[in-house]
Design a binder for these strands. Structure first.
Lengths: 338, 338
DNA sequence: TTGAAAGCGCTAACAT
DNA sequence: ATGTTAGCGCTTTCAA
């Protein structure tokens, strides 16, 4: 049986209150007592029962990462875990524990309410894929410390942070123009792919700023996958006047794009610049390596951790922000010889 | 302030003991009382404080996934998260919570000892990357319910499960021979890459069984990355007599291999069969798509969950096993026209 | 079938 | 500077 605070008190010939004070670093204890207590602890190989402490203090020092973890999600969405890693690093550093719960949007409402009232967690970081108006309602009503990762697409009271994908799109376009590319095309997912849309809007806003007209067919939308990237690139190459650079909404599409260019024997970056978003391993494996506008999602997770801890301490602050800035990583696919 | 068991007892005009019994489904309570208590709970929107319950019952219903989560690990090692997802699914189903802790091998010993004595967790599932003889010693001495994912490479008392990589190697080789390929080469990582070595040994054992001699230079070892795969393939192609199939120890190497074959205008699968391991997205994107020997790592995680719960219930069982079987996924890269 | 009361291990207010 | 004691919210034993 593991030693308890009583055993320590007995052995150190003092009271449990004093032992508790020693553990929590109260100033009003004499050095002699401190030493005695510490020695008793060592002798007994004493480890405080943190569950009892949490119970007594009414705090769990725990945050739950609530998301949907289907099979193969590690392959299809590595960002989700990179966010989690960033979150874990901050929580760990601040003495908090990270709990992970996979759930769907429907059940998330009841689950979080339960967990919070059960006092098994002080706060929640929630992936945008499991939010709903009902969740918003419940969290608002119960005043649950939370932070959503990903901007909600409906009217809400949530605190949230997200990557600024529109800005990423702007950066990609600006950079290409700076490099001397003059006619930009964009290939991406369909309208309901919000990430594609934000990136596209960023691109278009820059082109408009520069009074550049986007010729018909220079914006292609299709599936978010390799084959579709191939096809969309072909469509663009079939036009009479071709662009001199293509912005690919994501890595899979970019891969298809590169294959199409290779098959048509179009030189990258000389004849065609190629840029994409997010630094997946793909970008560094293709020849030439791809320039990307990257977002540090580990950092996004870390920020989420910081904010949720703030919310736990001061429940009345409100957070809505695009927190993590995109960074351009220049590689060979856009390095134009001038 | 949230309602407590006392409030419920008061409102239902009974005692806290009875309320507790109703919650835990004791048979000795009259239906009338049960109804009264349930109604009181509903009226008060009562949610039991599980922390208090856990404290009282001396169980946490929590398992910790202990591993090392460095930045970008989501990209470099998606398997780690797939294991976690499998683990979460089983724990969740059995009413357990999953905690995630990132730590290095050195600190893991002290951390786990603390956590266990602090009674913040009932058991641990530990990734093999953070184990050490010291950890083994500690866990053995303290009798901590645990399960290691990944076979330890030193003398130990651990309970562990792992994928059978040797068997995967055997499967790859057998399958190629069945397909009519007659001369197999292998390219992989260096000797300290245990996964490569197990897979290679499996391959060699099958070749030996078939009395096939492996010509000099048909086994190449180098870095576990794309460029190295390219180089190793070139080495093999430079030989006077070439193999008719190449087994690539992993996806990255396979990607380099495919590039080299394309550059040398060697047709896959007609002139050269290509097979690799683990069904990363790569395998499905390359042309032709790669045949792989895959391991369901989600299932591996799920098994880990089952076993650790067993260990928690019966600490004296011992587990050492290669639990998850590899499965061949046949695709175009080895489909020989006969 | 029910209830009183003694914990679970620790903290913290209060007294000394 | 130290000790006494009353919780924290629930479970569980034992008695009624």
């Amino acid at each position: 049986m593991a030693a308890t605070i009583k055993d320590v008190a007995l052995r150190a010939n003092t009271s449990t209150a004093t032992v508790s004070k020693v553990m929590n670093g109260s100033y009003s204890i004499s050095q002699a007592t401190i030493d005695r207590v510490n020695e008793a602890m060592r002798e007994l190989d004493y480890h405080p029962n943190l569950r009892a402490r949490n119970f007594s203090k009414k705090s769990t020092k725990t945050v739950v990462w609530v998301t949907s973890l289907e099979k193969d999600v590690s392959f299809s969405n590595p960002h989700m875990f990179e966010i989690m890693c960033g979150l874990e690093s901050v929580l760990s550093e601040k003495g908090y524990l990270l709990m992970v719960k996979s759930i769907n949007a429907k059940d998330a409402v009841e689950y979080m309410k339960e967990m919070y009232h059960a006092q098994l967690a002080d706060g929640f970081v929630v992936h945008a894929s499991v939010i709903s108006p009902e969740l918003d309602e419940m969290i608002y009503h119960e005043e649950i410390p939370h932070l959503i990762v990903g901007m909600p697409h409906f009217e809400n009271h949530f605190c949230w942070i997200d990557v600024n994908n529109r800005l990423a799109g702007e950066q990609a376009a600006k950079y290409l123009l700076q490099q001397g590319y003059q006619s930009l095309a964009f290939i991406g997912g369909t309208d309901d792919d919000k990430i594609t849309m934000h990136r596209l809007n960023g691109v278009l806003s820059v082109l408009k700023e520069h009074d550049l007209i986007v010729p018909k067919g220079y914006v292609q939308q299709g599936e978010s996958e390799c084959d579709s990237g191939y096809y969309m690139t072909e469509q663009i190459l079939n036009k009479e006047s071709k662009p001199d650079a293509i912005i690919c909404a994501n890595n899979y599409i970019a891969y298809g794009c590169m294959n199409a260019l290779r098959d048509k024997a179009i030189c990258v970056p000389e004849e065609m610049g190629v840029i994409t978003f997010d630094d997946y391993p793909f970008s560094q494996i293709l020849k030439p390596m791809l320039t990307v506008v990257n977002v540090d999602v580990f950092d996004l997770g870390a920020q989420a951790g910081k904010y949720v801890l703030q919310k736990i301490k001061k429940p009345n602050i409100h957070i809505e922000s695009y927190i993590t800035y995109p960074v351009l990583i220049e590689r060979a696919s856009t390095r134009r010889m001038m």
